[in-house]
Design a protein around this nucleic acid. Sequence first.
RNA 1: CGCGGCGUGGAGCAGUGGUAGCUCGCCAGGCUCAUAACCUGGAGGUCAGUGGUUCAAAUCCACUCGCCGCAACCA
Length: 524
Amino acid sequence: MADAPRWYQTTAIDYPNSRPHIGTAFEKLGADVQARYRRQEGYEVFFLMGNDENTVKVAKKAAELDQDPKAYCDEMARQFQEVWRALEVSYDDFIQTSDKRHQDGCRKFIQKVHDNGHIYKGTYEGLYCEGCESFKTEKEIAESGGVCPDHKVPPVRRSEPCYYFAQSKFQDQLLRFYEEYPDFIQPESRRNEVLAYVQGGLQDVNISRTGQNWGIPIPFDPQFTIYVWFDALLNYVTAIGYGSDEERFRKWWPADVHFIGKDITRFHCALWPAMCFAAGIEPPRNVFGHGFVYVKNEETGVTEKISKSLGNVVEPMDIISKFSAEAFRYYFLRECPFPGDGEFSWQRFADVYNADLANYLGNLYSRVITIIAKNYDGHLVADSDAEPGVIYTQVDLETTVKQVEGHIEACRYNQALQAIWQQVLVPTNQYADRKEPWKLVKTDKEAAKQVMLDLVEQLRAVSILLKPFLPKTAETIYRGFNFPQTWESVCCEDVWAQSRRATDLRVTAALEGGKVKALFPRIA
RNA sequence: CGCGGCGUGGAGCAGUGGUAGCUCGCCAGGCUCAUAACCUGGAGGUCAGUGGUUCAAAUCCACUCGCCGCAACCA
């Protein structure tokens, strides 16, 4: 048997100076669906996440709390992972950029780029705030009326020695690269932005900082630390053994996809591949810049960007404890198009929860099980030669499965879910109403049984299709019956390839008073 | 003229050349197996505007108006 195809994917690493909010979670969910889908379809998957810790902000925050920065980072990493686990994000590794493995790999990488002649010493001149002890951009200063936005004092022009990464040398190579791999930047709409940016001329990047005792010292000049962006991007390679385990590194690199927020597209589509060129490694195959989640202000009806200053930050746990992790996953994956933007509101959440999860999905599961339990003692013996009923008039199940797979592969999760609801759940409820097995069972128990087998078959299909999206719910539905294949091994193709295999179908879900526990209890 | 995106019934979205579609909400009816769920029917849109291309445009082109994101470290 041939080796399984490999799939290496990452998410952006997060600053741990505040806890994750629903926007941060959105990215991890989108990535998680992809990882689960690839695993299910037979790929050997490595799914990396992590935290970005070598920034001044983190050191400051730790100092405020009178904590050691590393201890602070470790505690935050624990808290982040607690949230990711609660959301059933199936990451394989979690890297912290304050980890030794990252710092060692990082130094090797920058040394390599230096040895290859792409780093040179120069001077950086800019507006410096003595309060912040850091440079400010012209824009920042201009926006706050000529003073530092934090300290309200005018900055001074200052120049200091630094190291530059010769990004400009790679401009042509980058443009050729985009041309050769037109799918590199996803979604398509972000492509023009990056092209225009690179065509507009790349500048060399100052990749060093001085006077910081938190961060990674530059190996060839330890009084400098590595600029946080240069360091952060390297997590994608240090996590898989760059500089320490060549075999492992070669196994996984290049990454199949980096999932990132649309705001950092440029770093990933220009700076990062240029860094790869400079170090003599391949660039990643794909960068996917997802959209943002905005929050609808329930009072004013205005859609706002999530921000601390607006006080509209919603944390995942707020929602998980009121509803469930599965509902959380469903809402964001269904309501917010991954390539574009979406919005959250409690009202909308409740509407979607009741309509899609409680009514269409949960209720179908309940009614099917109850009928079988009541009338057949939870046991249907199927005739192997019985003709399945005609459920679909527009699109058949196999076509739907293929559409869903296409949508997942393109990260159009909302459209995948929409297809499952519109093309499977809706017709199944319609079919049940047309056939009325609860009436039919009184006059023709055999015919009613065939209808029930058809309905169960639909539930089996739904559970498989939902496997990457709602792992727990899908498993509960699947395990509600004694389907022959194991849950772990079931994949999309089985929807049609393994249909109607059960000749001795039993309801295995736990029943109480002849009824099954609601998958999603309605919210008032 | 910095770059880019968006503007479709009350709300949220799909639809990229050929009789305007989905979910929620609303109105009426049906059903009663089911989580007051499910099914059927209905009201509601000049697809931001103007001009153009075409036998035919929400869909292509031009311009106008409105909203938003990015512009080297706030997912």
